[in-house]
């Protein structure tokens, strides 16, 4: 317990985050959410805020590879966990297969839910390369899309599904 920690006061404190494989040091308030920290001081605006209550998934990023709503996490509470955002998914010259499949199947309309949707799908594909349509539905059940891209998201993931080894 560090009750006397002077950094634990109302003002801004220094937070070290591991984001997309890089160590980033930023000044934030305790109340700053991870989503705000990413979009603000870190300049990673690919992560979107649409409901700010964990109800829509537009702010989905990975913590240690698992999708989370970055709007419902405090930046000060992230600790040493690895944060991966949509900007960290593709390499300099190659898209993540999920991103390419989204392009190929037009699993994109207005695009505002898309970064979060991609992050949820890519996490599923990592965990479960042989994912079935119902697995995809469940994996994106926390990602709302008002344009109605779900059928094409399912098609994109169908394209990527690796059949389990016989």
């Amino acid at each position: 317990m560090q009750q006397s920690d002077p950094s634990a006061q109302f003002g801004r404190s220094t937070v070290t985050l591991e984001v997309n494989g890089t160590t980033r040091v930023i000044e934030v308030e305790a109340r700053t959410t991870l989503a705000q920290a990413l979009r603000g001081p870190l300049g990673l605006t690919g992560t979107k805020i649409a409901c700010d209550r964990g109800a829509c998934g537009a702010c989905t990023v990975w913590l240690d590879g698992s999708p989370v709503c970055s709007c419902m996490l405090l930046a000060v509470g992230v600790g040493h966990r690895q944060v991966t955002t949509i900007e960290g998914l593709a390499t300099a010259d190659e898209l993540h297969p999920v991103q390419q499949a989204f392009i190929d199947e037009d699993a994109v309309q207005c695009g505002f839910c898309t970064p979060g949707m991609v992050m949820s799908c890519a996490a599923l594909l990592n965990d479960q390369p042989d994912c079935q349509p119902d697995d995809v539905r469940a994996a994106i059940s926390g990602n709302l899309c008002r344009c109605g891209t779900y059928p094409h998201v399912l098609a994109a993931m169908h394209r990527l599904r690796k059949d389990p080894a016989p």
């Binding site: 964990g54 998934g57 989905t60 913590l63 698992s66 999708p67 989370v68 709503c69 419902m72 996490l73 949820s120 996490a123 469940a138 994996a139 059940s141 926390g142 990602n143």
Partner: peptide
């Protein structure tokens, strides 16, 4: 319960 993102936290 809830969604995958919420269940992870």
């Amino acid at each position: 319960a809830a969604s995958p993102q919420i269940r992870n936290v």
